[in-house]
Every structure is written in C-alpha cells, then in structure tokens.
C-alpha cells in the first residue's frame, strides 16, 4: 500500500494524518483516503474531482501529470505527497 502524507499547511484547516492506502493510480489511492477522511477531500480536489489549481500531488517526488483524472500510476511502495503550490516571491 502506498504511503500518503500531506503538507503541514493543510493541518490547520482539516486533520490529515499520514496514512496508507491501496490503489494502482493516484485516483484509486486518493479515493480510498477520502473515503476514510471525507472532510479533507474538498481541500485537495475541487467539485469535479480535479486537483485544485493551487495544489500539487507528488508520487515518489514527481509531480503528477494528469491533474484531472489522476491516472498517474502508483506502486505498492510509493509515497504520495500532497502539498500546496507555492507562489509569490
């Protein structure tokens, strides 16, 4: 099962403890995570299930390419890391 962890910045709004979740794609993994932690869904994904414009999902250190369908593959030992896109100077 993939390890899923979240930026510290999100924790002030909604609890997102590190967890493990099964799945072969980012979508499958995150759906599992958000079934267990429903309040967190809207902080990461918009109403259409796309990654919010100012959020980033990394799989093993690489930003995912498919932000709409979340089809990027996830391995059983992968680390999925969710953080906010930094902007500004």
């Amino acid at each position: 099962m993939a390890r899923v962890s979240f930026t510290q910045n999100i924790q002030r709004h909604v609890a997102c403890p590190e967890t493990r979740a099964p799945g072969n794609t980012v979508r499958e993994v995150l759906e599992h995570v958000f079934r267990e932690n429903a309040p967190a869904r809207g902080y990461v994904l918009d109403e259409h299930g796309e990654v919010r414009r100012h959020m980033i999902v990394f799989v093993d250190g690489v930003a995912i390419k498919d932000r709409r369908d979340l089809s990027d593959p996830v391995g059983p030992e992968s680390h999925v890391y969710i953080m906010q896109a930094l902007s500004g100077g």
Binding site: N9, I10, H13, G42, Y43, V44, R52, H54, M55, Q84
Partner: peptide, 8 residues
C-alpha cells in the same frame, strides 16, 4: 477563501 484549498 483559502488560496490553496478553495472556498469553505
């Protein structure tokens, strides 16, 4: 209005 996390 969270810049990163959307409106709540």
């Amino acid at each position: 209005h969270h810049g990163h996390f959307g409106s709540k």
